[in-house]
Every structure is written in C-alpha cells, then in structure tokens.
Write a protein that binds this DNA or RNA. Structure first.
Length: 497
RNA sequence: GCCCCAUUCGUCUAGCGGCCUAGGACGUGGCCCUCUCAAGGCCAAAACAGGAGUUCGAGUCUCCUAUGGGGCACCA
C-alpha cells in the first residue's frame, strides 16, 4: 500500500440523507472503515445534502444509530465534531462557490446559460449538452448575467486525449476524454453538484483514500480533471463492488421488498436487521465476508480480527448477489457461541416486546436450552415464550396437538396417567432422573420413548416443537408439570364434541 | 446508442503460470445420532462463460465474442 508518508489514512462515508440506511451503503462504508481502522487512521461521516429536494428529515439520526448498533465508530462528523467541519454540505456552500468562481477565473470552468428548454432540445436530438456556452467571451457572459439570466457553472473537460485513473482494486482505468460531458459544478440555485462538493470537501477534510461504490467509476476521469484543475494533490481511489439482488439481477434495491428463494422477505434496511433478531456481530461478519475474505478458509471471525487483516487490494472487484441465507447460519453461530448471560440480556427485550414479563433467573435457566435452536433472537417467542407466560392461565392444548403422530387418544391418555405416579415418586425432579424413570416406564409399557416423551411435551408445553421435555419440566417444576398433565388428561376425557 | 467495470460450484468465495484429478463455506440431498425442533458427525452432487492466441505448460497473461452490472441529470 502506497500511502503518502506522513499523511494519516482518512476515509469517509458520505451519504445523502434520503431516508433509511440501506445495507449497500453500509457495506461500502464498512470497507472504508475497516481500511481506516487497519491503518490506525480516521473515519469521517459527511452528509451530502446538496439536493434539497431529496433530503429527508431524521436521516442523520438513523445513520448514526445504524453505525452505533454495528459498532462502527466515527471519528468526525455531524453531532460528533472534528476540526474540519462543518460536516454537512449545506453548511459549506460558500466554500464551493468560492472554488467554482476560482475555476471560472482560471478559465477551467464557465458560466452556462442554457435554459431547461434548450437542454431538453439537445437531449431530444440525441446528444448530451453540446457545450454551446463554453466559448463565450467574458464580456458576453457578463452581459447575459447582467440581464439577470440564470446560469450554472460547468467544468471545461478536455475534448480530446485520455485520462488514466488508478483504482486500488482494479488497477489502471483509461477513459477517452471526449466521452465526458462538461459537467455542472454549481447549480443555478448556488448549490454545488456532487462532482464539485465532494472534491472540495475531500481536499479540505484531508481524505487520503476515497472509497466509494463502482457506480462512480465512469465519472472518475472527470473528478481527476477537476482535482488537477484545482491544483490539488489527489487522494487514492478504490471503487467498491456493489450488492446485487439475491437472484443476481440488478442492484440491491431499498424501495422494492426483496424475497429470497424460500419466499422470506430479505432485510435490506439497517433497522430491519435489528427487527429480524440478528446480532450486530453476525451482521458485521456477514457483510465483511462479501467481496472480501478472511483467509485460512475461515468464515467466522471477529471485527477486530478482520481489521487486522483487511486490505483494499484484496477486495473482489466483481459485484455480488446478496447471500442472505448465510446470515441465518452466521447468526446461529454467534448465538451458539454467546455466553448465557449475554444471550439472556439480548433475548429479554425480545420477549418483553412480545408481551411477556421476564424473570431473569428463569431466563438464565432457559437460555442453555435455546442456544442450539435459535437462528434469530425472535425465534425465542414461539419456541420458549410459554416459560414466561402466566402459568396459572395455562390451558391444555387442543387434542390435535396433544395426540401426536403414531398415537391415539386412548394411548395418549394411558401414557399421561401412567406417567403421573412415576413423576410424583421421583426423589429429585431433575431431568436426568425424569429421563431414566420415564425411559423405564416406556420400556415396561411397550411404548417408544418418543411416544411417551412427546405426549408429555405436548401436555406440558402445549406445543409440538419445544426444548427437550425433561429439561423443560425441570424448569416448570414438579407441581406445575403434574398440574399440566392432569389438565391434558381432562381435555382428553372431554367428549370430542 | 456510446463508454466503463466485471465473469470459478445455485450463492459467497480460495486461486495472483506448473502445488488444481480446482480448496472452503452457505444452501441442497443421503446416512448416523436423536423425545420434537435443532445442533453435531460422516458422505454426496455441484464451477474455471465460449473461442482464438502467448507459453514447454493457462482457472491464472492477451485479444475477440457472449452474458451480467453500472454510467452518459442543474441526483448523489
């Protein structure tokens, strides 16, 4: 990595405040952030709100929340501060205007008085802007301006020759200058366009490496020419691959809801990952592993370990279909590797949001039963919500749940009533003691373990799927377990009206 | 239409001229384990887009074609 000696690495994420944070943007930001952290540099947040029409209030807060949730710390930015602020472009208008004017004075840019009708005509006749105001004399331009005609400032792109850019991920990229238009730098409302604003800001904020999505590659030669016209040393550039829809068709969209092969809706907005019960560590691991890989055939790694190894040059230049199915697996890995206390802490708000009153001690006893069973935090509700419901309100499940496969009503009733004295007679109501006693009961009565244990499961949990039966009964306690078995027996004896 | 970028199993990827009879992971299928659901173990199917070159030798280099993505705004 050729970093100019003495210059710290400074990267930035510069989103437009146009609403919820999209995972594609966050992924781009992540690579810039990993790079900055790897080199002990700074990561800056800058808000690019030069298109007032598209600004959505509250966007900044959501960006900040997303980064905080993921653990991506920001060194400088709005609300955070820093010595190169303000970090919101609409608060820096004068700077852009000054430099746009400077470029005009130097003959590197010019005032263009084309009306929207003129532009529409040019477009209709097939071409882009035909540079018709490029060679106006200063006197002519002054005259039009004196008449109060609105104008924009356009960059004078060289009309021939080539521009070669260096991209850290794909090497040299060569463009014919004639392909590029005379881009607008300053709009008629006095606001800069992206092309001017980001360069002025990257320069003044001492950005060392511009990490941005590939869609900027085609305008890279324009930016190079602007940097040179301004007479500033350029930063280095890396154009990052983007996320495609899960089927590989088109850029991952935030507007259209996406569906994976299994029909499940795919999270694409930052808050959707939280709502769906994913852990931030898993999401970070997931995103880092798209377009970059840890090496050593390792799929699960901490952010800290990724920072240590991260190299921009190692980023895969190809775009990626969004491999969302891997996130479920990764999330389950992180859940399995969590400590009981940590997982309990994360599960508690999920259960509470579902309306349960959560007792911490009971939660800590339940968590070990869940660790290998949860793919997302949210699954705790259908799997183990019954532990936290009001026990006194428990009702026997309908008989179609009570009577499991390969059993009938009479058999289920026989097994349940036969279990009662066995469970009552146990010295210890531990799951080990329950298991050996009930396994012996099954053997003696000729039922399969599954028939006996499953009947108890349904009676005691009210569910067909649950944590292991005896562990569950141990937590419910003997009295409650027996009470529930008796309720089930009553239900079975009701005439099937 | 013009320009740019990309192209290894279904998907994410390893591979930077011989170590590749192409490795890992997710997913899928099978078997084992098993009180449900999981987890775990074992096994399997599954890829170098196509064609020309360069080279003793090409997944790795070059060119062409195809396909995919992106850009050509007073949006970013």
């Amino acid at each position: 990595m050729s970093i100019r000696p003495g210059n710290p690495v400074r990267t930035r994420y510069a989103p437009s405040p146009t609403g919820p944070q999209h995972i594609g943007g966050i992924r781009s930001a992540l690579f810039g952030w990993l790079f900055a952290r790897h080199h002990g540099g700074q990561f800056i947040l800058r808000i690019e709100d030069t298109d007032q029409k598209r600004s959505v209030p509250g966007s900044l807060e959501r960006i900040l929340e997303s980064f905080a949730w993921l653990g991506m710390d920001i060194d400088e930015g709005p609300r955070i501060g820093g010595e190169y602020g303000p970090y919101i472009q609409s608060e820096r208008l004068e700077l852009y205007q000054t430099w746009a004017k400077w470029l005009v004075e130097k003959g590197q840019a010019y005032k263009c008085f084309a009306t929207s009708e003129e532009l529409a005509e040019m477009r209709a006749s097939g071409g882009g802007y035909d540079r018709r105001y490029r060679d106006l004399s200063t006197a002519q331009a002054d005259n039009l301006e004196a008449q109060g005609k609105p104008y924009v400032i356009r960059f004078k792109m060289p009309r021939s020759g080539q521009t070669t850019g260096v991209d850290l991920i794909r090497g040299d990229v060569v463009f014919d200058n004639a392909q590029l238009q005379d881009a607008v730098l300053l709009k008629s409302d006095g606001f800069p366009t992206y092309h001017l604003a980001h360069i002025v800001d990257d320069y003044h904020m001492k950005i060392s490496h511009v990490t941005r999505a590939v869609e900027w590659l085609p305008s890279y030669p324009l930016h190079i020419r602007i940097w040179e016209a301004l007479g500033w040393d350029k930063p280095q550039f890396a154009h990052l691959p983007v996320l495609l829809n899960p089927n590989g068709k088109g850029k991952l969209s935030k507007r259209k809801q996406q569906f994976a092969a299994d029909g499940k809706s795919v999270p694409v907005l930052a808050h959707e990952f939280i709502d769906a019960g994913y852990l931030p560590e898993a999401v970070m691991n997931f995103l880092t592993n798209i377009g970059w890989n840890f090496g050593d055939n390792r799929e699960v790694f901490s952010t800290a370990a990724a920072i240590e190894r991260f190299k921009l040059e190692a980023v895969n230049p190809a775009n990626s279909a969004y491999p969302i199915a891997k996130l479920d697996w990764l999330n389950s890995q992180y859940i399995q590797d969590s400590t009981v206390d940590d997982l309990a802490r994360r599960l508690k708000p999920v259960l509470e949001a579902a309306g349960y009153a959560v007792d911490d001690d009971r939660l800590r006893r339940v968590v070990p039963l869940l660790q290998v069973r949860l793919k997302t935090l949210n699954e705790v509700v259908p799997m183990a919500g019954f532990f936290f419901a009001d026990w006194e309100a428990f009702e026997a499940p309908p008989t179609e749940i009570l009577i499991q496969r390969k059993m009938d009503s009479a058999g289920t009733a026989a097994v349940l009533s036969g279990s009662l004295p066995v469970l009552e007679d146990l010295d210890e109501f531990s799951h080990e003691a329950q298991y050996s006693a009930m396994a012996a009961y099954a053997k003696a009565t000729g039922y399969k373990n599954g028939q006996v244990f499953g009947s108890l499961r349904a009676a005691v949990t009210g569910q067909r799927v649950s944590p292991p039966t005896f562990e569950t009964m141990e937590i419910l306690g003997r009295a409650e377990s027996i009470r529930r078995i008796e309720l089930a027996l009553q239900a079975l004896r009701q005439p099937a009206s």
